[in-house]
Amino acid sequence: MRFAKAWLLLWLVLAAVSPLVFKELSSEMNIAQALSAPSMKHWLGTDSLGRDLFFRLLAGSSVSLGVSAGAVTLALLIGAWLGAMAGYFGGFREKMIQGAIDIFLCFPTFFLILGVIAVMGPSLWNLVWVLAVTSWMGVARLVRAEVLSLKESEFVLAAKALGAGDWRILWKHLIPNAAGPLRVSAVLALSGAILVEAGLSFLGIGVQPPTPSWGNLLMDGKAVLGAAWWVLFFPGMAVFMTVLSLNILGGSLARGRRIDT
């Protein structure tokens, strides 16, 4: 557990820092050194264009994690807002939102993403919003359930008696109290988003080279697997360890959630 937290913290820092510091180093090509094994000069080896894999991995982290985090944040915003409205107001609004949730859930996510990317092009921004649009539903359901159960609480009644309006109650009281399960959901959604991005980039329809992402590093790696195992191995390990750490974190959050009232 501590290892998982440390791993995630490390990558959080690295991903944030990489675009500023390592941009040059990650794209520096040196054909003479192409496909060289890990060594003192290149810690994780080089890829087919002689680029240092270590720096590529770092640069890729900021792309992969950035896209995933962006998508999850957007999904949280959309889902929390819609879920809260459905739970609090009920009636027509709830029916519409429930309907939307059901419709979106019916779509086979991966194919929807493929379709959108095919039509609109694989830009980073497109990736972020299409990932968000296919994962807000779980958040909405969760928030709706929490809001439904909390809206009859005495502290909500007390706020109403003091003159608080609906929106204030929703944003200031109900949604923050729904944060507990939301945290768990967000962590797990993040791990899912990383996998989806990696998968898309691996297939060549996600992040496009030369912009590195863990997914397209895997794509490079597969191509030269026979000759240079390290090009696939290290990005693969990065994805694996990150997703694993997120799942461990999510699991422990889910178990240890203390209900304060």
Partner: peptide
């Protein structure tokens, strides 16, 4: 006119 409820700890936002 104001109201005071039965369950004191629950009439405040726990957060």
């Amino acid at each position: 006119m104001q109201i005071v409820f039965q369950n004191p700890n629950a009439s405040f936002d726990p957060r």
